[in-house]
Design a protein around this nucleic acid. Structure first.
Lengths: 336, 336
DNA sequence: CTGAAAGCGCTTACAG
DNA sequence: CTGAAAGCGCTTACAG
C-alpha cells in the first residue's frame, strides 16, 4: 500500500492534522512546515486517498453522467462539452449507462441511492411525471439534458420546432409530396419530430398522409441508424407515387437513405436532423443541435446548484438551426 | 442525509455487523434476521455508501479509463465494448481524458496516485520506455488498449500490417501511382500506417515517392478529421501527374477526401482505415479494426489481473481485416 | 448465527 | 500556527 497521512506526519515530525491542512491549501500553516511536509510527501509519492477524503468531507467531488447509449454521436458531443467544462474544476467524472427497459427509473434510483456523486447529469432519459417525482426526492443536484421537466434544471432542444423548420424548408423549396423517415414510434425524439413535421404541413394547408411517414424494420438504437434509414428510403422509392422530397429524423438515417438512393440510381432531395460533424462532408442539409454547448452548459448549471441549492430552477431550450447544404436542393442532388 | 447502517441496525434490533453481512450476501445470517433487515432497509431507502465500503474494504470496485480524446469514433466503439463487459460485474466506470502534451505521463501519474480505482485501462496512450516504466511502478492493474509495451497486458491492432494489406489491395487492383493521405506525423497511428504503406510498395518492387504522402494543414485531433482529408485530397488532385488511387489513414479522412473529389467532379479509387459504422454506407473499402472487441477483451484481462496478479502478461494483437466495397474499384467509383 | 471492537485514511471543530 | 480527538459509514477478524 502506498504512504498515508500518518507516514508523512511521522517523518515530518508533525501531526496528521497539519499534513491534512497542507494538502487542503489551508492558509494557517507556517511556510516552513508546509515546505517540509510537501517535500517529504513528494519523495514518498504521497497523495491523499480520494475515498477517505470523500468519507470525511461527505463530498465526493464526483459528477455522475447517466445515459442510455454510449456509442452515439449525440452523446459523444455532449460528453465532449462536459469534459471540457469539468476540466476547470477539481471534480471527476463517472459514467453509467442504463438499459432502456421498463425499470429504467429503478436503475437510476439505484445509481443515485448508492450516493457516490455530488451531482447527476441525466442525458436523454425520458420518464413520466410520476417517475420524475420519485427521482426528484432522491437528490438535490440533478440536471436534465435533452429532456424537459419543470422540477429539474434542464438543457434541451426543441425537437418539435426543429422538425417544423426542417419541413418548412422543404415546403419553401416547392416540394409537393414530402415524405418523412421516422424511427421507433415510442421514442420521444421520433415522436417530437413527427409532430413538427405534421404541424408544418398543416400550417401550409396540406394534408398529412401517414403513409408518407415511414421507418425501416431495424430498431436497434431506437431506429436511429444508417440501416433503418436505408430500409426506409427503399420503401419510399418503392411507392407508386414517389415523394419528391424527404425529411429524415436524424443525419445517421439520412446517410443510409442517401446510400439507398445511390444504390437505386435515383435521387430525391433530402435533409436530416442533428448536423453531425460529418454532415458537412455529405453535403447534407440538416438542423443543427448545439450538442457540445448543451453538455457544457448543463455542467455549469450543476455546479451552480451544488454551490447553492436555493437558486431557482432554470431551463435552457435551444432552437435547432437550419443548415442548408446541397442535399435539399433539386439542382444538384447529393449522392453517395 | 440518508439512512446509515446504524439506523437500520437500531430499528432491526441487531448489530451493525449483521446489517453489513446482509448486504454483503454473507451466508451466515439467519433467514429471519435477513428478511427483517432487508425489509427495514427497503422502507428506509437504505443502500450502503460506496465510499465508506471502498475505504473499509480497500477496494473501490471502480475501473478507470484514461483516454486522450473522448469524442472520437474509435474510442466510442471501444467504450461500448467496455460498458457491455462491465455490466457483468459489480464495478463502476470512471473516465478521464488527458491532454496530449509533454506532461501526459505526469497527468496519468497523478490520476493513478490518487488511487481511486482497482484497475486502469489506458486507451491510445503512447509513451516512451522510460515513461512506461514509471507508470508500471504506480499500479499492478493496468491494461493498454491500442498500444503495445512488453511490461503491460495489452490489446492492440497491428496498424503497420493493416496499412500493408490496404496498400497491397490497391496494388493488386493494378493501380500504378498510389497516393497516401496521412495525418500528424508525430502521431503513432499515422507513422505506423506510413510504414505499412511504404513496405508494401517496396515489396512490390516499387519506389516510395514521399511527395505522394500528403496531409492537410489542420491538425486538430492529430489530423484525423474530415477536413484534413478534404485538404489532402485537394492537394492530390492538384498534382501534375494525378495519382490513380489513394490510401487514407482513416475513414474519417476518406470521407473528406470523397467530398473533395465530388466537389471537383473527379474521382479516383480510394480506401480508408478503421471501418467505422457508417463506412458501409459510404461504400468505402476499409481495414476493419475490432474496436468493440478490443474494449471488451481488455476489460476481461483487467478483471483477470485484479483477480490474480501472478498471471503472465498477455498481449493480443489483432490483424485488421480488409473489407472491400465499391470505393476502391475503378469500375464504379463512389461519389459523395 | 451474532456482537463488540478495531480499523480503513482522511477532515475539522475545539483548545491552546 | 499546531495537536489531540472525534467522526465520516462501512468491513472483518475474533470470540462466543
Amino acid at each position: 500500500m502506498s504512504a498515508t497521512i500518518y507516514d508523512i506526519a511521522r517523518e515530518a515530525g508533525v501531526s496528521i492534522a497539519t499534513v491534512s491542512r497542507v494538502f487542503n491549501n489551508a492558509n494557517n500553516v507556517s511556510p516552513k512546515t508546509r515546505d517540509k511536509v510537501l517535500s517529504i510527501a513528494e519523495s514518498a509519492g504521497y497523495h491523499p486517498y480520494a475515498m477517505a477524503q470523500a468519507l470525511a468531507r461527505k463530498k465526493s467531488k464526483l459528477i455522475t453522467v447517466i445515459v442510455p447509449v454510449i456509442s452515439n454521436h449525440f452523446f459523444m458531443e455532449v460528453l465532449a462539452g462536459i469534459q471540457d467544462k469539468i476540466a476547470e474544476y477539481d471534480y471527476d467524472l463517472n459514467i453509467y449507462n442504463v438499459r432502456i427497459t421498463e425499470d429504467i427509473d429503478k436503475q437510476i434510483e439505484y445509481l443515485i441511492k448508492r450516493g457516490v456523486a455530488d451531482g447527476y447529469l441525466l442525458i436523454s432519459i425520458h420518464l413520466n411525471d410520476n417517475q420524475w417525482s420519485c427521482i426528484k426526492k432522491l437528490h438535490d443536484n440533478i440536471i436534465l439534458i435533452d429532456e424537459y421537466h419543470h422540477d429539474f434544471d434542464s438543457v434541451s432542444v426543441d425537437s418539435v420546432e426543429g422538425a417544423y423548420l426542417a419541413t418548412q424548408h422543404l415546403i419553401d423549396l416547392g416540394y409537393e409530396r414530402i415524405a418523412m423517415i421516422t424511427a421507433l414510434m415510442d421514442s420521444k425524439p421520433a415522436d417530437d419530430r413527427i409532430r413538427g413535421y405534421s404541424r408544418a404541413l398543416q400550417d401550409a394547408g396540406r394534408i398529412v398522409d401517414s403513409r408518407l411517414i415511414v421507418s425501416g424494420k431495424h430498431y436497434s438504437r431506437d431506429g436511429f441508424t444508417e440501416r433503418n434509414g436505408y430500409e426506409a428510403m427503399c420503401q419510399i422509392l418503392d411507392m407508386h407515387d414517389v415523394p419528391d422530397a424527404c425529411f429524415c429524423s436524424s443525419d445517421i438515417q439520412a446517410m443510409g437513405a442517401m446510400k439507398a438512393m445511390n444504390d437505386r440510381g435515383v435521387s430525391i432531395p433530402i435533409m436530416g436532423f442533428d448536423d453531425l460533424r460529418f454532415s458537412e462532408f455529405l453535403g447534407l442539409t440538416s438542423m443543427k443541435q448545439p450538442m457540445y454547448d448543451m453538455g457544457w452548459l448543463a455542467l455549469e448549471k450543476l455546479f451552480q446548484r451544488i454551490d447553492d441549492n436555493e437558486i431557482d430552477i432554470s431551463h435552457t431550450i435551444f432552437s435547432p438551426e437550419l443548415v442548408v447544404r446541397s442535399s435539399s436542393q433539386i439542382t444538384e442532388p447529393t449522392k453517395i
